[in-house]
């Protein structure tokens, strides 16, 4: 039976401010407004690789306002089979609890799913909560911070990375994997596929379609609230000026703090 694969993707403000002009080594603040969340591009690429090896169908699912449509077309252009946009005014302001809830409801509505691919985190909120949250709501197994996966007869074999090292974990499907940023090189859409994607269009669902009441989501049903913004804290540091000519003064400080190894 063909694998049913879902990639959950968020369209985020462009964080690629760090585009560097390689000749002059200056930062070029890109002016594009939105992008596919970088880790989600890696998630899609991994799903495409799984599909290429084991067969199956890829659905890209995003809970974003309709401005996301061209980006979802891009995903289909890269090789996903279809794209679903879960779009409903009621989800505005959702934190990661209702977001995971709504996405899980949409995945259930798709039907039986074998593997859900998420990014390790979004570049705008960067919590990394939604992948694990979706796993919880789907009662699926989870492998987070994954760089590669294989599929073997009802099991996902995933390579996970964490602070102490790298492990290979085997979990049965249905499974959620969250994919590390930069863990692969996402392919680009081809002109042919992108034309087809635009003609095919994006499926748009609202909450009613996925069977979720509006009062389950949104700002008012989010446990966390952003109370206020405060300036980035600055520790009181004295910023004592030193010149290259009296660098010895700095080395004195190093010595006082026992920072110089192998001294006399």
């Amino acid at each position: 039976m063909a694998l049913e694969l879902v990639v959950i993707t968020k369209i985020v403000p462009d964080g690629s401010e760090v585009f560097i002009d390689p000749v002059n080594l200056t930062l070029n603040r890109s002016l594009a407004t939105n992008v596919i969340n970088p880790a989600d591009e890696n998630a899609l690429e991994l799903a495409l690789q799984v599909k290429a090896r084991y067969g199956g169908r890829i659905t890209v699912l995003s809970m974003t306002p309709p401005f996301a449509i061209p980006y979802l077309e891009e995903c289909v252009g890269r090789g996903a089979d279809r794209a679903i946009l879960l779009s409903d005014k009621a989800v505005a302001g959702s934190d990661t609890y209702p977001t995971s809830l709504a996405i899980a409801a949409a995945i259930k509505h798709i039907g039986k799913v074998d593997i859900v691919f998420a990014g390790e985190k979004t570049s705008d909120s960067s919590t990394g909560h939604v992948g694990p949250g979706v796993a919880e709501f789907l009662d699926a197994e989870l492998a987070s911070y994954v760089s590669s996966v294989e599929y073997d007869d009802g099991y996902v074999i995933a390579t996970r990375e964490f602070e102490e090292g790298t492990e290979v974990v085997r979990i049965p499907t249905p499974a959620v994997v969250t994919v590390l940023t930069n863990s692969n090189n996402p392919r680009k859409a081809s002109l042919r596929r992108k034309i087809d994607a635009i003609r095919q269009g994006v499926i748009v669902w609202d909450l009613k379609e996925v069977g979720l009441p509006p009062d389950a989501v949104g700002l008012r049903n989010s446990p966390t609230i952003v109370k206020r913004m405060i300036p980035f804290p600055r520790r009181d540091r004295k910023g004592e000026k030193i010149t290259t000519d009296n660098i010895a003064k700095l080395v004195d400080v190093f010595e006082q703090n026992k920072l110089i190894k192998g001294g006399e």
Binding site: T96, Y97, S126, T127, H129, P132, G133, F162, T224
Partner: peptide, 22 residues
């Protein structure tokens, strides 16, 4: 940590509460 965030995210859903990351 990676494992801690994995655990915290799932637990927050289970206990129906709010989690602030990082």
């Amino acid at each position: 940590t990676h494992n801690g965030r994995d655990l915290a995210a799932r637990t927050a859903i289970r206990v129906q509460s709010g989690l602030t990351a990082d």
